[in-house]
Design a binder for these strands. Structure first.
Length: 215
DNA sequence: ATGACGATTTACT
DNA sequence: GTAAATCGTCATA
């Protein structure tokens, strides 16, 4: 099986983020089941200068240590006391950049994703209406829930791990998602970083996908 | 030691 | 549209 290697990830976050659209994110469960989906929405977090990034002002701690590691590592963090979000580390060693994967379109293991996202699995109230497939992975915490990603996956090297990797888009280089379908706009949930950084057009998504987190 | 807050989601008015 | 849930992390003391 083909997978993206170190070279692909060794670039600026604002370059990697749109390049990941159309690629397939793969997560193998402990039981050997393949959970996979097409990446349809990403955001770039760019190093010490970016006031919306966990590494703003060069901040380095046990929590964000993985962001300082080599490109291709998986950075998972816990937030709001209940959610996990997953990033692809890029840049290179001591260049703390990462791309947040905000949404994927489920392809393989959809039944397991439905189970992982069910109210019984999440502990939330019973759903009034059935969980739609478009709601399975349409958000950074939702996709982690669906794929069973937690801090256990933090630091995994996606260029080598047998549990986590990314497969190239069919027509990599030219872009699996036609350029006219890629929307480039501002990031979500970072207003507190201030207008200068909240205004950066560092979010990309596929206009044609029903699986993005926000339209 | 304490308090404020978060790269979110869900439920409710 | 607003509010609640819920806890690790970080700044302040």
């Amino acid at each position: 099986m083909k997978r993206l290697g170190r070279t692909f990830f060794s670039c600026d976050a604002a370059v990697l983020a749109p390049a990941l659209l159309g690629c397939t994110f793969v997560r193998m469960t402990d039981a050997g089941e393949r959970l996979a989906g097409l990446i349809v929405e990403t955001e770039a977090y760019a190093g010490p200068a970016d006031q919306a990034a966990h590494t703003r002002n060069g901040h380095r701690s046990p929590r964000n240590e993985v962001m300082w590691g080599d490109a291709g590592l998986c950075y998972v963090y816990f937030t709001y006391g209940m959610h996990h979000c997953m990033n692809v580390v890029c840049g290179g060693v001591d260049v703390p950049e990462a791309v947040l994967v905000r949404a994927i379109e489920p392809v393989d293991g959809i039944e397991i994703m439905r189970t992982n996202r069910s109210s019984t699995a999440t502990g939330s109230k019973p759903r009034k209406h059935p969980l739609r497939d478009r709601d399975l992975c349409s958000g950074p915490a939702r996709l982690c829930q669906a794929l069973g990603i937690s801090r256990d996956e933090n630091g995994l090297d996606m260029t080598q791990s047998d549990r986590l990797w990314i497969e190239p888009a069919p027509d990599i280089g030219r872009g699996a998602v036609p350029p006219d379908r890629i929307v480039n706009t501002t990031r979500v949930g970072i207003d507190s970083a201030g207008p200068e950084w909240a205004g950066k057009p560092w979010r990309w998504y596929d206009r044609g996908s029903a699986h993005v987190s926000k339209r």
